[in-house]
Design a binder for these strands. Structure first.
Lengths: 238, 238
DNA sequence: ATTATCTATAGATCTATAGATAATGC
DNA sequence: ATTATCTATAGATCTATAGATAATGC
């Protein structure tokens, strides 16, 4: 008997595989489910798939999550960063234009690195408005924030005369569209024969690009973009 | 017996409902399936649903389509307009900028009015690359066309120095993102309690807006946009 | 005979529950 | 006793096939 192996074993019956869970089983399930949902989409992932990926038997999953939907809910409850970030930006100094730049860049990056495909999340969240209320709130708040920022930018004369509602639609559409293409690209890098031919881009590059595109479409003087980018860079990684 | 009722009845056993199909049963199935897929997504629509919507029993559907996937294939095979339009634009006169404007506007409009959700189509098409080869081809060709147009625009000095690959990603992402938001909005206008609060927009308005946003983000002199719009308008509805 | 539908059902999943089992903690 | 797993399975779908049936066409 090696003394060093006396890592206190976890409670409950051991797993059939013999492997003990590495961290918290709940966290592992959420992480595994996140990956699978992102890859194949919620409907195409079974409780068996999730269980296997987390090293459990199918029915053992029900000890942790009593319904499949609750797994989904947990996977993106983890992901509730942007709201906090929005508040932080609001409190900090900077022009509306620069704040919008940071916001778009952050949201795109965040979506690209998120385990869930927003498109499907939105579809599922529609069916269960109560369960997914947080999700809707966040998305709506982002929309409202864009409206506010565009209004401010137009008033200050930095932006061309724009419909702020349309601008908000543009931001959300663009960010989510970019996320989707990023996902596809990532999947195919792993999966082999790709129907997409274009070059790989990393998430940071796409996020920069999304923010730049949106801002250039709003700025009265597009040449000011590089100034904004320098200012935004001063805030570090975000 | 009223003489006028002698509309020759269709072949085969009559439907249980008593109603004869209005047009070609195949067309009706495709139309009904298109609506359902768009509403709920392919995976959430059963053969029963499609059959009922088309006035048939579930298994009667298999007379027309031997697999569910073939129904999907048929729903968007109908929808193969944009390629033809692309060729038409290419042959006509105009600057690369104006052609890009028309292209983006057309693609957005076309997606918004399409029965299928591109996002899901892409996911499904990945699983069956052979069956959906046309779809990939069209999407790729659109991508390539954007690359070509942006390159031409940059060379002629109309566009700021841009990465044409990123621009193409932007166009596809944006168009598809807009489509999705348009769909949601349309669903909720029918469905009642909407998690989305923003104002309704019609497809034409969104298409104009998408094209304007993309072009403004590329043009060296954004003020030229209105000129482009006037030129594009000269080509009529598209 | 051909066409287009029907009814009935086999077979494949997939979710979710019931109840047994094998650890630790007290 | 409590915790976390297991095995087994009921029940609900959903796809797809087999074979009967009711029209028209020749």
């Amino acid at each position: 008997m090696v003394r060093g192996e006396e890592l206190s074993r976890p409670l409950g019956r051991p797993r059939a595989t013999g492997d003990a869970p590495v961290g918290s089983p709940r966290e592992e399930i959420i992480a595994a489910a996140g990956r699978l949902f992102a890859e194949r989409g919620y409907a195409q992932v079974t409780m068996s798939d999730i269980a296997r990926a987390a090293g459990l038997q199918q029915s053992s999953l029900y000890y942790w999550f009593r319904r499949k939907e609750l797994v989904l809910h947990a996977t993106f409850a983890v992901n509730r960063v942007p709201l906090e970030f929005m508040n932080r930006i609001g409190a900090q100094s900077g022009s509306p234009a620069m704040k919008l730049y940071r916001l778009v860049r952050f949201d795109t990056l965040q979506l690209c690195n998120s385990p869930c495909d927003v498109n499907e999340l939105e579809r599922l969240a529609e069916g269960q408005p109560k369960l997914f209320a947080n999700f809707w709130e966040d998305r709506q708040r982002l929309h409202d924030w864009v409206v506010t920022l565009v209004n401010a930018g137009v008033e200050e004369g930095y932006f061309v005369d724009s419909d702020p509602e349309l601008a908000a639609i543009a931001v959300l559409s663009f960010d989510e569209g970019i996320q989707k293409r990023f996902r596809h690209q990532a999947e195919h890098r792993l999966g082999g024969t790709s129907p997409f031919r274009h070059q790989s881009r990393n998430a940071a590059e796409l996020a920069e690009f999304a923010a730049a595109t949106i801002l250039r479409s709003l700025l009265r003087r597009p040449a000011n973009l590089s100034l904004l980018q320098r200012q935004a860079a001063a805030f570090g990684d975000d």
